[in-house]
Design a binder for these strands. Structure first.
Lengths: 273, 273
DNA sequence: TAGCAAAGTTTCGTATTACGGAACTAACAA
DNA sequence: TTGTTAGTTCCGTAATACGAAACTTTGCTA
């Protein structure tokens, strides 16, 4: 007959989930939408919302139907991402702003081929996927954001490392290079040869080297004064990619990457402040 | 002689401060830097770091010099922002970010026609120009960012107001409507008629109504559940625009505007998981 | 090599907060 | 009115956050 009350059961995790949920809905969510999405008791949701909005991580605005001027703030509230989180994301996380700008470019890629498009970035000697844009709303990609890409197999990782110093190659390839499929390059020498060839061509492939039946094409984003840290890529079943004509995909990826680096270098001259 | 131990004294605030601190230092911070920056007891800092990195809000990497494998991580660690926070940026889009996202879209417009492209936005009943992208680096546009556009003459202002409530029209057109050229519409009735026609067609023109010899074309950006707040536009000497074939410019502007609103609305439905 | 200081980690008793069922009130519908 | 749902507050319980102090590294100097 324990009332099953419990002290802090994993506050941070719940807070993050709530923030992530709200972040996904720019137009805002109602209390009950949040309630059912999180599947937590009403009282708990209420308390979470209260504490997060006190910290300006979440804001609520009154109804939101038609104008009415400033957010009134009674009755049905709409919860949106708070200024604190937005500020955090805008300024600090993304100093180059490439991550944000990539949204547009990836969106166009995804629409054009009806395939999933990705932005990956180099961070501490590892390449991880940061943004994923799917062509349809419910479609789900073959790579999840946050995943660390194997440097000897993934197209995105190859596209980035190919344009970095050979000194870095040794560091990155010093660990074990597992054979993820029978097509994976498992010897550092072979991988380096691949890197060199990619540096020549300017585009990287992963032909079923991670998953049988799965293929990826990636183009590096050259940032002046920074070098190559980002890559844009498309991942899809091999047969589907072949249907698209690889050259077209290559061209689109190169254009996307060039667009990003061109916008970036334009800003260097202008220098806002 | 109370040990002055205390339960949670404002966990969330401290967590945010820590995250913000780390976010401000992309190169990473050591334990003691954090310790002294926050001015909290060592044990507290330690616990904060532990819980935040368990949630992937903060990552630590072993010194960074040699080791060899996965961040082995004893001894001196370097703390950097975790993937979870970075990924948040990939999923979050809020109306304010349209300004940033527009860079890509405007860039493409400017390149395509070698003309200057603009993003304008509604702010407190006034439309002002926010972003300007010129085709060449040194070229300068005909409108400066920050300038407030006359609601009865500017293409951007017309494109936005046309899709707002008629109630708003009265407010906006209640002031004087100066005749900037001999082609300017100076009567509220005429302007409203123009608004209605724009709402039908979906695109707005300014044919030398502000400056003799200067023409602009604008398309509204429809944001679901928010309405029209932004417009993209191109401004150029009339003769140059005619050289481009107005229909092509219209199509490109509409595509650009649709791209922005489509990115925004994609995020709306994504309930993820 | 020992010896020491500073950096970083663990322990532990206490106090504070998080927890969520249940009881409430407010809004809308029939 | 009455019923139903959305949203809020209560409150006893239990789990976690707290930080001084003890402890274990690491790095430096002699």
């Amino acid at each position: 007959m324990t009332t099953d009350a419990a002290g802090g059961r994993d506050l941070l995790e719940r807070q993050l989930q709530l923030i992530e949920l709200v972040a996904r809905h720019p137009a805002g969510l109602s209390f009950s939408e949040i309630h059912s999405a999180l599947g937590l008791p009403k009282a708990t949701v209420h308390r979470l919302l209260a504490s997060l909005s006190k910290a300006d991580c979440i804001n609520f605005s009154g109804s939101g139907s038609d104008d009415g001027d400033v957010a009134a703030g009674k009755g049905r509230r709409h919860y949106v991402l708070g200024g604190r989180i937005r500020r955090l994301l805008g300024s600090a996380v993304d100093p180059d702003q490439i991550v944000l700008l990539s949204q547009v470019v990836l969106h166009r890629l995804a629409e054009k081929f009806k395939e999933t498009a990705f932005l990956s970035m180099l961070r501490e000697d590892r390449v991880e996927t940061v943004v994923m844009v799917t062509p349809a709303k419910d479609a789900h990609g073959f790579v999840n954001p946050g995943r660390v890409m194997p440097p000897h197999a993934a197209a995105s990782a190859k596209a980035i490392f190919a344009f970095r110093s050979e000194h870095e190659w040794d560091r990155v390839l010093s660990g074990p290079l597992p054979a993820l499929t029978d097509l994976t390059l498992t010897s550092p020498t072979l991988v380096k040869r691949e890197y060199r060839s990619i540096k020549q061509v300017g585009i990287a492939y992963c032909r079923e080297e991670i998953d049988r039946g799965l293929m990826a094409i990636a183009a590096p984003v050259h940032l002046p004064q920074i070098g190559v840290i980002y890559a844009v890529s498309i991942v899809a079943p091999s047969n589907r990619i072949r249907e698209h004509d690889e050259e077209l995909v290559e061209a689109a990826l190169l254009e996307a990457a060039n667009e990003l680096s061109s916008i970036f270098s334009d800003k260097l001259g202008t220098d806002g402040k």
